[in-house]
Design a protein around this nucleic acid. Structure first.
Lengths: 339, 339
DNA sequence: GGGTAGCACTCGGCACCTCTGAGTGCCAAT
DNA sequence: ATTGGCACTCAGAGGTGCCGAGTGCTACCC
């Protein structure tokens, strides 16, 4: 009983099941997948695969479907690398080049990925901590209210309002802004903390409280990884199949709304195969996503990852196709950010 | 046959059906709703209501369910005004007061509304055109790239990157920024257009092209109503009922992703009853939303509407409760923006 | 004239049945 | 190791009959 053929059988089962969404039996397997042996032989192989926990039977007289473990093996060792077609590639390129700002790039990317994969697409906004500060602005909103605005090199803008104890002198605000910009511009945001700590001492005693408040707000803004924004598209694709998966929709939608959960999942994903990370079913330690797989990878302006992008759908998804699409969009997204 | 009782019957049918999601027959109607007549009498009334197109029978031997027209009559003339409970009110207040900036206020509001109504909640970001400009910033992103940042009085920040033909002189940029702020600060964004038109003439010929580019981008940003952002929450509530409505989920999700559609619906809604607008089923001229109702109202910092907030769910929703929740959240949201 | 009681009628849904066919596991033969 | 054959299992489709909810109608009462 050749080990190699058994894996071929597994691959055939995954391919077929992904396409038809129906348990696949020994006969269709030999008919549709050019296996040069008889159904009986396949049955023996399938028994072994089931023994190994790679496939399972929904009920006695039905065909087999892959388990999470089966999909895992398929993804790691059996799937052939797909590439997105040239027209698709061109479409991606032109679409992303037409974007006017960061929001627009992200928005287009996520829609695009949803359309390419027919899954739910997720894009995380570029992380603040790894970007370089381009400009910092203090804008008075009222007598004692000030808006702090951070602008990064990749065009992300973050704002935060703060309330002061008493109305500050405009000239002091102006000086603070000048000093902040002198100190901070061009630095990575993650490096800022020690630099800013000394700033209050440079001001007259009366103003130090105000300066400290502003510095604290800036630091808070940088620290809040939970502030990281996420954008979704293609949630309607979850309802593509009226049958079994439809009962699973609700917990998935709930998980998608919990951006914190989603962020955690994205960032925790180790990139295994060719820079793309795949989490299958129960591997996502979140009960609502037990029948859901996530394919994700990082993107960034100059080689290093500033954020992630991914696709999410039922475990029975087209992994090679999804992986290819995620990789392609990530690549063009990186390029669009750099340019 | 008293007209008044017939309307009572309609109200009872709506109440019951909203609660049970099952067609309601003449018997349960008298049993559960304290109507002091016999089922036979009710049947006559129901026949009349059906004749009038207010209720309908799914099939011959079933009870009645309200039609869109029936819900409309209910909302306009029969529903009793509900108020949110005092603890709920207090919860809304404290939650919204804890918000740190505009994004946070909007985010909290939409989640809150979704939780209160058990529907999908929608909040439109405050419109740019009606806000006052607080500050305008030009930030160089590269030799020929400039980021234009608009900051409004209610804390909204809008940015747009632009590409120049040649690298501008920093001093010219500084002067342009100063002039723009002098001209535009404190004005309503909608008034800006004529004011900005004269600006290029004030600059040396060499720089006029650059100035014109910047002005054009500012104008574009203001003009783009389609840029208006929308935030959703509670989409998982769509999947609350596994049965009939679940087949309708997909088109609804698709409509929700088309922010343009949603924006159109929100802005077109006339406010009828007590400041809250209700669109029922087919009244939404969008085929995906034929079984969906929307309850919406405006909110704004000082009395006038700067944007809208609403809830969306199956036509068989609890209208009085939803209306009350939308109104309450809108009120506190307005207050949070003003404060 | 409006309300009521009684009655015949309709029809969806449930329980029950059978039958079919897909699919399996095992065994003996190659 | 592979294969054909065979007995076995079982979900799902299709058919049947019954029940009960609900109706519309008509005759009757106040």
């Amino acid at each position: 009983m050749s080990e190699e053929r058994r894996l071929q059988v597994l691959r055939a089962i995954v391919d077929d099941y992904v396409q038809t969404h129906e348990p696949v039996g020994s006969r269709v397997l030999v008919e549709r997948h050019g296996l040069a042996v008889s159904p009986a032989t396949i049955r023996n192989d399938m028994a072994a695969l089931e023994e190994a926990g790679l496939i399972q039977q929904p009920h006695t007289s039905a065909g087999r479907i892959p388990t999470d473990k089966g999909y895992r093996l398929f993804v790691d060792r059996l799937s052939t690398v797909k590439h997105v077609s040239t027209p698709e590639r061109r479409a991606i390129q032109t679409l992303l080049e037409g974007a006017v700002d960061l929001d627009d790039v992200v928005d287009r990317s996520v829609r695009l990925l949803a359309q390419l994969t027919h899954q739910v697409a997720v894009v995380q906004y570029p992380s603040l901590r790894r970007s370089t500060l381009r400009h910092l602005e203090l804008v008075p909103l009222g007598p004692t209210r000030v808006l702090v605005v951070l602008i990064t090199d990749n065009g992300r803008v973050e704002q935060r309002a703060l309330e002061l104890d008493r109305a500050p002198d405009p000239s002091v605000v102006a000086e603070l802004r000048a000093r902040l910009n002198a100190l901070a511009s061009g630095r990575r945001l993650a490096e800022l903390q020690p630099i800013l700590a000394d700033l209050p001492a440079a001001f007259p005693l009366d103003d130090q409280a105000m300066v400290r408040t502003v510095v604290r707000v800036v630091e808070e803004t940088l620290a809040e990884d939970s502030e990281e924004r996420i954008v979704l598209a293609g949630t309607a694709n979850l309802a593509r199949f009226r049958d079994d998966f439809s009962s699973t929709i609700r917990p998935v939608l709930e998980a998608l709304e919990e951006q914190v959960v989603l962020l955690g999942l994205l960032t925790e994903m180790a990139e295994d195969s060719g820079g793309v990370a795949v989490r299958i079913g129960h591997e996502n330690l979140h009960e609502g996503l037990a029948e859901t797989s996530i394919v994700a990878t990082g993107y960034g302006s100059d080689g290093d990852t500033v954020a992630r992008i991914g696709a999410l759908g039922p475990t029975r998804m087209d992994y090679p196709g999804t992986i290819a699409a995620v990789r392609a969009v990530a690549r063009y997204l990186s390029r669009a950010l750099a340019g």
